[in-house]
C-alpha cells in the first residue's frame, strides 16, 4: 500500500466518525491527560513524596522536625513544598523541570550517605539561597509579609530590624538562613559565626 493509499484509508476511517464524536472524544482525552498531569503535579507536591527519598528523609526532614515550621503555638505547619516549590503555575513547572536533576543525582548516589550529604550541603544551600534571593523570598511571602506584620506584637529585636529591612530592601533569606534545617559548615561563608582558630 502506498503512502497516498494509507492517507485515503485514514480519511475514510475518520469519515466514519461524526464531527461531534471527534470533538467530544478529543475533549475527553484532554481532560484525562490534563487531569493526569495535574494529578502528578499534586502528588509530587506533598511532603510524603519528598521524603520518599531517604536522602531527604534522613537529613533535612529530621532536622526540620525540631523547628517552628513543624510545630508551633498556632499549629499551622509549613511543609517542604510550601518553602521549596512555587505556587504560581509557570514558576512551578520550571521548578519541577529543574527537579529532574534531583532524580539524576539520586541515581548517581551523590548524597546517599550523611557524610556525602554534609560534603555537598554548602552547594545545595547556596542554590536555595540564590533562588530565594532572586525571587525576594517568594515562598516565604506566600505565608508571611512585611505588610501584614503587626510590629507592636513582635519582639523588640524583630520589629527594629524588620522596619529597617523594608527601607533597605532586604529580603527574608538575608537574615533567616537555617530557619528549617541545620546550616552547612559556615567556615567558608562567614568566619565570625564559627569557632575561632589560632591567629598567627
Amino acid at each position: 500500500m502506498s503512502l497516498k493509499d494509507k492517507y485515503k484509508n485514514l480519511q475514510g476511517w475518520l469519515a466514519g466518525f461524526s464531527v461531534i464524536t471527534l470533538v467530544v472524544s478529543a475533549f475527553a482525552l484532554g481532560i484525562i491527560f490534563w487531569g493526569g498531569f495535574n494529578w502528578t503535579m499534586e502528588m509530587t507536591n506533598t511532603e510524603q513524596f519528598c521524603i520518599s527519598c531517604h536522602e531527604m528523609e534522613d537529613n533535612v526532614y529530621m532536622e526540620y522536625q525540631n523547628t517552628i515550621h513543624y510545630s508551633n503555638r498556632t499549629g499551622v505547619r509549613a511543609t517542604c513544598p510550601d518553602c521549596h516549590v512555587p505556587k504560581e503555575w509557570g514558576h512551578k513547572i520550571v521548578r519541577k523541570i529543574r527537579a529532574s536533576n534531583e532524580l539524576l543525582h539520586k541515581v548517581l548516589g551523590t548524597i546517599n550517605t550523611r557524610e556525602k550529604f554534609e560534603a555537598n550541603r554548602l552547594e545545595l544551600a547556596q542554590h536555595e539561597w540564590a533562588r530565594m534571593k532572586k525571587t525576594d523570598s517568594r515562598e516565604c511571602r506566600n505565608c508571611h509579609s512585611f505588610d501584614s506584620m503587626d510590629y507592636t506584637a513582635q519582639g523588640r529585636r524583630a520589629y527594629k530590624r524588620h522596619i529597617k529591612a523594608v527601607d533597605d530592601g532586604q529580603t527574608c533569606i538575608d537574615c533567616h538562613k537555617g530557619i528549617a534545617h541545620e546550616l552547612p559548615d559556615m567556615h567558608e561563608v562567614d568566619a565570625s559565626v564559627v569557632v575561632g582558630q589560632k591567629s598567627k
Binding site: N66, T67, I68, G178, E182, L183, P184, D185, M186, H187, V193, V194, V195
Partner: peptide, 9 residues
C-alpha cells in the same frame, strides 16, 4: 531554635 553546633553558632 538557636542552633549551636560545630558548623555554626
Amino acid at each position: 531554635g538557636y542552633t549551636i553546633n560545630l558548623k555554626f553558632n
